[in-house]
Amino acid sequence: MKNFTYHSAKDSKEATKLSSSNSAFLAGGMTTIPSMKLGLASYKDIIDIKGIKKLSGIKVSGKSVTIGAITKHAEVANSKEIKKAIPSLADLAEGIGDPAVRNRGTIGGSIANNDPAADYPSACIALNATIHTNSRKIEATKFFSGMFETTLKKGELIEAVEFQIPNKSSYQKHPNPASRYAVVGVYVAKNKNDVNVAVTGAKSCVYKDENLSKALSKNFSVSAVDGVKVSSSGMNTDIHASADYRASLVATYAKKAIEAC
């Protein structure tokens, strides 16, 4: 690990002011610290945002659930309000990594990092989430722009994520047996005005499967999935799963999700 300067920001303003092209925010550190230790990343400044009160907490209103950026996965998993409003979101958080990761990793860090195999991005897409930053609101569909890429600007800080409460929903994942990241994760949500099938793990970036979403909005049933061919084109191949296997898993886990809704 290369030397860096550590800062602890007291509010969003200070955090963004301290940031530069050679800095990173430190939330749970579950991605940043291992990549620094392995020499895959190095920064001049590390800006700790864990002390910014405004970024933590869970709020449930009639229509939506808003989760502060530095809220830990374990807090989401154990939140009574979330379990009641969007149980699938609590389930998703409960299935992230292992207890150590869940007790440190944060929702803001997870979506800012946009790992192609991360779980939360699929929830954002499926549940028509809005990402609140220190300067604007971004719709989830306009937020995740590519592998490890988002439309966040330099120094822009995520403050909270607002999810719309669906009629019913379920997240089902085929975990990587080693890391427990998603080999394929399928989030199915039947919302007031639409049905979304969001898929993570399968391609270089989370996406909404338009064909499955369309088919399910006509007929929200397992058999509707059978009528859709999930193409393996553009899907990842690695030692844990080939593109063909991933394509098959997308259909299988979409069915599991519908059954669990």
Binding site: A178, I239, H240
Partner: peptide
């Protein structure tokens, strides 16, 4: 390829 717990199960 399996040189860490992210890949070695």
């Amino acid at each position: 390829i399996t040189a860490s717990y992210m890949d070695y199960t």
